[in-house]
């Protein structure tokens, strides 16, 4: 039973990471990061259940969720500023201009 959960976690990681590499929109990069985080949360809960230390695992999940949302808010602020400077959200246009 628990191996299937591990497989799901690996699938979520692959989906998230693949999308992170191939997308061109800045906001979708953040969505891919969120999918990766969900995989991580599922893995932590799985570990908590298996070793029967749910309290420590839940503490880790709560801390992780809080920190992720702060990082997301700062990233959204940076994206809004990038948009105000260049009027586009395309990765290629923005990251190529600097070379």
């Amino acid at each position: 039973m628990l191996t299937i959960i591990f497989l799901t976690v690996v699938l979520l990681y692959i989906i998230g990471f693949y999308y992170l590499i191939t997308t061109r929109n800045l906001i979708r990069i953040l969505i891919a990061l969120e999918v990766l985080t969900k995989g991580l949360v599922l893995m932590l809960i799985y570990v908590g259940k298996v070793t029967e230390q749910m309290a420590t695992a839940q503490t880790m999940v709560i801390t992780l969720i809080i920190i992720e949302v702060v990082i997301l808010a700062v990233a959204a602020g940076i994206i809004i500023n990038i948009f105000n400077r260049t009027d586009s959200l395309d990765t290629r246009k923005i990251f190529r201009k600097n070379k």
């Binding site: 969900k38 949360v41 839940q58 709560i62 969720i65």
Partner: peptide
């Protein structure tokens, strides 16, 4: 799976 508090956090935040 038996993690109610983390589930509530996940729901309200994410």
């Amino acid at each position: 799976m038996g993690a109610p508090l983390a589930a509530i956090f996940e729901l309200s935040v994410c």
